[in-house]
């Protein structure tokens, strides 16, 4: 069953030719044209999302483009398997994730690849209980305003992307599936072929590491509880 993405857009009927089995026998030129038009219309607004997710998963623009192109190719050739047209967005993202995971596993099997991060480094272990909230939250009002507000005001899209990209592979991939794409824990476990408990622990560690990185970035941007919250401007 295709996984519906929470951001699934308004329904748009899929041309009947596709329901009959995709490139089935007897399709007229008009059927084919309709199907192409439908596919392109749905794909076009989704491309930034597909590319963004692929980029967060791979961390590499070229690899991300390759994965998007492969996913689009697979989706087109399997369009007849899409039972609910309303699930197109989630279905295509699901294909993209599978393309990425296959490639990721293949790379992991290479003997020369250094072991990654199911076992965190000592530094990561130190970070495993870190929370930004504890650093930023002040139970009383300060005359210069709230540190939390300053944090969010100075938090750039780029900061978050860098912090996600800095996560070790298994943590990053799990977090992108759950927190960025909205998969449930059991869906992520199924996709990654890992136990549910591993998804939970990876997520927990990923969040702590991410928040620690964001805290360090916030320090660079001048958001600190001990500087009077003046916060220097970013260049």
């Amino acid at each position: 069953m295709p996984l519906a993405h929470p951001d699934t857009q308004a329904p748009m009927p899929l041309p009947q030719a596709t329901y009959r089995g995709g490139s089935g026998i007897g399709m007229s030129d008009r059927d084919i044209d309709n199907r192409q038009h439908w596919f392109e219309q749905r794909l076009s607004p989704l491309l930034d999302r597909l590319y963004g997710c692929a980029l967060r998963l791979t961390r590499d623009p070229d690899d991300a483009e390759d994965i998007v192109a492969e996913a689009v190719g697979k989706a087109w050739s399997r369009l007849g398997e899409l039972r609910d047209p309303q699930c197109f967005d989630g279905w295509l993202l699901h294909i993209l994730n599978n393309v990425f995971i296959s490639e990721w596993r293949r790379r992991q099997c290479r003997p020369q690849r250094p072991a990654t991060a199911e076992d965190p480094s000592p530094d990561e272990l130190d970070s495993s209980t870190f929370t930004l909230f504890q650093q930023l939250h002040q139970p009383f009002l300060l005359w210069w305003g709230s540190l939390e507000e300053q944090f969010f005001n100075s938090l750039l899209h780029e900061d978050i992307q860098q912090a996600i990209d800095a996560l070790p592979d298994p943590f990053r991939v799990t977090m992108v599936l759950v927190e960025v794409q909205g998969y449930s824990y059991s869906e992520a476990a199924h996709l990654l072929g890992i136990p549910l408990g591993t998804v939970r622990s990876r997520l927990s560690r990923a969040r702590a590491l991410l928040q620690k990185t964001l805290w360090e970035q916030a320090g660079d941007a001048g958001v600190r509880p001990d500087d009077g919250g003046t916060g220097r401007q970013r260049p």
């Binding site: 491309l47 190719g73 992307q161 927190e179």
Partner: peptide, 21 residues
């Protein structure tokens, strides 16, 4: 964090997808 999953696709990718289709 969720918003980090949307990034403007480069023109090169648009072109590649166009050619693929």
């Amino acid at each position: 964090v969720s918003a980090a999953g949307t990034v403007t696709a480069p023109p090169r990718l648009h072109q590649r997808i166009r050619q693929l289709l």
